[in-house]
């Protein structure tokens, strides 16, 4: 087991290194510069700026500097917000995005699994169709459309909740609805189909024959297996949602970190691009690692290491 973890750890570092290297060369390959402005820009001023941010150095030197920044996890100042470091931008954005993200995932998981299970148990009944209609709607309506819709209806017309900004728990409700609906629908559909499959299997019949209560059968025996596909998507979902979403954060004026992914690239703010990419990829590989371990817990047949457990 420990051997497996050590191996995975080194693989993770390798993955991040490859991602960082690719990002570095790709971002330098896109035409443009952080100092391209519509307005009058003066040649001397531009040179001073380039010198200040080490952009006058040859690419290999910049690359080494970037690798150093990754190892020390210090990405230096943002080019477009020169009096802030990338670390401080991510440091204040991430907790906010993560807070919103955790609630979103919880809501999506609980409501998605419930919908899926109910639909599977009442297969081809009215409840099934209702749940799946909700799910299809949830998948097909993009979250930014839903966001504008809920703001208009719930905040502006009905005046039940604040429209946007980030101040109190009430401010979180609308963005959570907008963000959670899509993942909820996906989870509901996954749960339903794998639940249907699991329910027809022999061991469930055995459990029934043994006279176990239906509740116990569903929760303890069926659901545990049926959740495998949900766990599979959970890793990417977690990494994606916890690190913030550009559109939803923009619409609701949430000071999270989602905007830096897009802004960094649009403005060619190289340190920000590197910072967000490395942060996101680290987070993602960590989540995937956790998911792999979760598999083993949920299904003892899955062995994490070749030589077999006990």
């Amino acid at each position: 087991m420990i051997k497996y973890i050590v191996k995975r750890f080194f693989l993770m570092i390798l993955t991040i290194f490859i991602i960082a290297t690719l990002t570095f060369f790709l971002m330098n390959a896109i035409p443009g510069s952080p100092f391209n402005e519509e307005k009058t820009s003066n040649a001397v001023v531009q040179e001073n700026l380039e010198k200040h941010f080490n952009l006058d150095k040859p690419l290999p030197v910049q690359y080494v500097l970037y690798l150093k920044s990754i190892v020390t996890f210090d990405f230096g100042p943002s080019i477009k917000q020169p009096t802030e470091t990338v670390n401080s931008l991510l440091g204040r954005g991430f907790p906010i995005s993560a807070e919103l993200g955790i609630w979103t995932i919880l809501v999506a998981l609980i409501s998605g699994i419930t919908l899926g299970v109910v639909a599977a148990l009442r297969h081809n009944k009215l409840i099934d169709y209702t749940a799946m209609t909700i799910a299809v709607l949830g998948i097909s309506i993009p979250n930014f459309v839903l966001a504008t819709l809920v703001i208009q209806v719930i905040a502006v017309d009905l005046k039940l909740l604040p429209a946007a900004t980030w101040n109190s728990p009430q401010h979180m409700i609308l963005p959570i609805i907008a963000l959670a609906t899509g993942p909820m629908a996906i989870i509901a559909r996954l749960t339903r189909s794998s639940m249907l499959e699991t329910l027809t299997q022999d061991y469930i019949k055995t459990a029934r024959a043994k006279g176990l209560s239906p509740f116990k059968i569903v929760v303890k025996h069926a659901l545990r297996n049926a959740l495998m596909p949900v766990v599979t998507i959970l890793g990417t979902l977690l990494a994606g949602i916890l690190t913030g979403t550009f559109v939803i954060e923009k619409i609701f004026a949430i000071p999270g970190m989602g905007k830096y992914f897009v802004q960094g690239i649009n403005q060619r703010d190289y340190p920000v691009i590197m910072g967000t990419t490395v942060f996101y990829s680290t987070f993602l590989v960590l989540m995937l690692f956790l998911v792999d371990i979760m598999y083993g817990v949920l299904d003892p047949r899955i062995k994490l290491h070749k030589k077999g457990g006990e």
């Binding site: 619409i251 004026a253 905007k259």
Partner: peptide, 18 residues
């Protein structure tokens, strides 16, 4: 000063009196 980047949201906040 709020910092709302989206003009639609800005207008909705104006409508709701914020």
């Amino acid at each position: 000063f709020a910092m709302v980047d989206d003009t639609n949201t800005e207008y909705q906040l104006f409508e709701s009196g914020d």
